[in-house]
């Protein structure tokens, strides 16, 4: 296929993948929440409630997008787009399997983090632009949370990059080929703290995507829906899609950096499905954590980052560089 045709196919595929994931992760979330709480979750629309996301989508699309009086209409409408677009752009450089990648960029990892940092601005502007006190409080929380957790996350990623010596996601996966003991999470010779690094990355990913127990942005019981309080219809829907797209991106990056990408653990049936299995396992854990742990207090959340995660990841960075220098 010609290069423009291939890119067009990938563009459509990426948008469809992000949208379908958003729709059906909501179903997984609700079904999971139901079973964790000894209910059965959605069951009326379609078998096992499988058509529920479609019904939800139609409902959201038929609703009117109301701009509150006195709100900044331009910023209010721009905010959901600013959350969604960076997530879609980040998919461009993610290698799902050998050759299944829209564009390989030799600094792909950096590109994902650069665009992920824009999404915060979207929530911030949405919260401020809706002229709602809950929204402003939520926006202020989101910023301090994101600044706090971006530091240990980037320190952990720098540790991995120092070991792999490249930002190229394809090359990072190719280094981990051949059995699960080659995966970065088990690469104890490079740094004995690699499993801890993976755990720190996972916690930071939860915080960066505003998931419980760090969902300070919406905190239903305190802030109604936080930054999304005033949004109706697809404005709310796009915010939601952006959130789930960001979770998928985070799970993809965790899979690539620590779990060997599309490498099959036991050496049979290689292919894209191993990538998807690992990715969806991480996403399921994200859902599991949300319905298992209660929301933390805001000070506890900041203390966890500044007093525990940052010192540990800093120590890991120093240890790894020392080991790299010695061996």
């Amino acid at each position: 296929m010609s290069e423009p045709g291939r890119l067009l196919a990938f563009l459509i595929g990426i948008i469809a993948f992000a949208a379908l994931n958003a729709a059906y992760l909501v179903w997984v979330e609700r079904k999971g929440a139901g079973h964790f709480q000894r209910r059965i979750g959605p069951k009326e629309v379609g078998p096992y409630g499988l058509l529920q996301p479609i019904a939800d989508g139609i409902k959201l699309m038929t609703k009117q997008l109301i701009v509150p009086e006195g709100a900044d209409a331009v910023l209010f409408k721009m905010a959901p787009i600013m959350v969604m677009v960076p997530a879609i752009v980040s998919f461009v450089t993610i290698p799902f399997a050998e050759g299944l990648q829209a564009r390989n960029i030799n600094i792909g990892l950096l590109m994902i983090f650069a665009f992920a940092s824009v999404a915060v601005l979207g929530i911030l502007i949405g919260g401020w632009g809706s002229r709602n006190k809950y929204g402003v409080i939520s926006a202020a929380r989101v910023v301090s949370q994101n600044i706090a957790y971006e530091v240990p996350m980037l320190l952990t990623v720098i540790t991995v990059v120092m070991i792999t010596r490249t930002f190229d996601l394809n090359a990072i996966v190719n280094q981990q080929m051949g059995g699960f003991w080659h995966w970065n999470v088990f690469r104890l010779t490079a740094s004995p703290l690699m499993p801890v690094a993976f755990l720190i990355f996972f916690v930071c990913m939860l915080a960066e995507t505003n998931r419980a127990p760090f969902d300070m942005a919406e905190a239903e019981s305190e802030l109604i829906a936080g930054a999304f309080t005033e949004y109706s219809g697809m404005g709310f829907g796009v915010f939601f899609m952006g959130e789930y797209a960001n979770i998928v991106i985070g799970a993809c990056v965790a899979t690539i950096l620590f779990l060997g990408g599309w490498d099959c653990p036991l050496g049979f049936l290689p292919g894209v499905h191993w990538f998807l299995i690992k990715m969806y396992l991480i996403i399921f854990t994200v859902v599991w954590v949300r319905w298992t742990f209660v929301r933390t207090q805001f000070y506890n959340l900041l203390n966890l980052s500044w007093k525990i995660l940052i010192p540990i990841s800093m120590f890991n960075l120093i240890l790894t560089s020392a080991l790299l220098k010695v061996f």
Binding site: L110, S117, V120, I125, V143, I147
Partner: peptide, 14 residues
């Protein structure tokens, strides 16, 4: 993008 949009602008809005 990472520093100026993701950090400086966010800090300014904050």
């Amino acid at each position: 993008i990472l520093i100026y949009v993701g950090a400086v602008c966010v800090a300014l809005v904050f």
